[in-house]
Design a protein around this nucleic acid. Structure first.
Lengths: 237, 237
DNA sequence: CGGGAGCTTGAGCTTGTTCAACCTTCGTGG
DNA sequence: CCACGAAGGTTGAACAAGCTCAAGCTCCCG
């Protein structure tokens, strides 16, 4: 493990305020693995044997039910996944797949549960991680139930524009079909969504989106801190 | 507070395995209040000053965004709400309103945060409560993204039939418009949904639904443990 | 240069919403 | 005790949003 990996890990909520010994115990027996694009890391309904931490690359969390499938979330570094399943010692509700080449730290689930009892600081960090994951998901549920497809797209663009540096442009970091599934629409409908937003000063060339007038798009999208995630998914790039 | 209230409280995940002193400290300074039907308990975007525990009655958790609004969840006894906001010392993401007369225990938020540090058993109980709340919400998100309105209705009927005793009938416990908003559809569309399910042996008279053939409805609905909540919302009636 | 994957476009259809009218139920006041 | 009004629920018709299928386009990569 590289020294800057250690630094990255320490940025995680889950390791904030934990004892050094806990941190060392957590990473000692863990696997740091590199995966190529498109690797299936987890299948929903399987048991959660590891806690996964994304150090590099993008991970798609998805789900399917009788034929249809959808993307629940796309994770950028540094983030973790299937913490709740690990704690409950239960099956995963989501599948995971790499969208780019990725480096991932895998910590044995039993170790996580063990450390929980040994370090109160760690447990407290887990409480806050879970509480914010819960709130993030409630917001996503509101996003889906209260907005149309085009509105979700507009708000996604605003969030990405901000997290990509506020240069009035967005580079879509993965396939548009993945974005479509995340936004709860078909790939076709996403295309039409972009076309519809051209009326609000949004232009697209390939994977690059330009937003001529951010306040105008904001006026269309009605973003709200009670629906949109505060922190962008790409915190550390 | 009545003795059977104490018993009810001890059924809560959040008080499982906590020290007796923690339990006593939690309920000593707390308010047990009765509210009539339709009382607004919380407004979204306000700070979370108390943890709420439902001892009797039904509570609607809802949310609105530019004009439109929706129901996120309906809580039956014994359940708690806005735990995540209390822990993060953040604003509520949801409004709360009584759907029936209700008795509610209100524990000061600062006390909850204090007890978290004092009793490791309590913190562990909070971890599991948050983990299952998170998983419940992910399932609800999948329910919304992967199913049509009629499918959500059919699966809701199956879940209620089971939790109401498996007598092949369901009594809708609140206004149909509330159910419609919870299921993510309009009241009109819910009516049409019931009409559509008459083809699957579902008949409605007022608030009472009869399900002639449960396996047949199940065959239509395709329920799944990865989407539908394991434990029914009305655990203790 | 050719092939393939991803993306876009169009047409037709399904699903869901809106708006308005009507129906039922229930509580209230004359 | 009946009449009335209000609120919840249902129904119908028109409309909007979203999906499917099929064809065509673009771009990348061999």
């Amino acid at each position: 493990m590289r020294p800057d990996d250690i630094e990255k890990l320490k940025e995680l909520n889950i390791f904030r305020g934990v004892k050094k010994s806990t941190f060392d115990r957590a990473i000692a027996p863990s696997f740091l693995q590199s995966f190529p694009t498109g690797t299936k890391l987890l299948e929903e309904n399987n048991s959660a044997d590891f806690l996964y931490i994304v150090l590099d690359g993008l991970i798609e969390m998805s789900s399917s039910s009788n034929g249809d499938d959808t993307v629940i979330e796309v994770l950028a570094p540094v983030n973790l996944f299937i913490l709740a399943a690990v704690l409950n010692d239960d099956v995963c509700l989501q599948s995971a797949r790499t969208l780019t080449a990725a480096r991932i730290l895998m910590i044995p689930a039993s170790l996580i549960r063990e450390l929980l009892g040994d370090d109160q600081g760690f447990m407290k960090a887990v409480v806050f991680e879970l509480a914010s994951a819960y709130r993030r998901t409630v917001k996503e549920l509101k996003n889906q139930k209260l907005r149309t497809g085009v509105e979700r797209l507009a708000n996604w663009l605003l969030k990405e524009e901000r997290s990509q540096g506020g240069q009035r442009q967005v580079l879509i970091p993965y396939e548009k079909r993945v974005l479509a599934a995340y936004l709860g629409m078909t790939a076709e409908n996403l295309s039409r969504g972009f076309a519809a937003l051209s009326g609000e000063g949004v232009t697209m060339k390939g994977m690059r989106i330009d937003i001529a007038d951010v306040p105008r798009l904001r006026d269309f999208a009605h973003p709200s801190p009670l629906v949109d995630d505060e922190e962008p998914s790409m915190r550390h790039e």
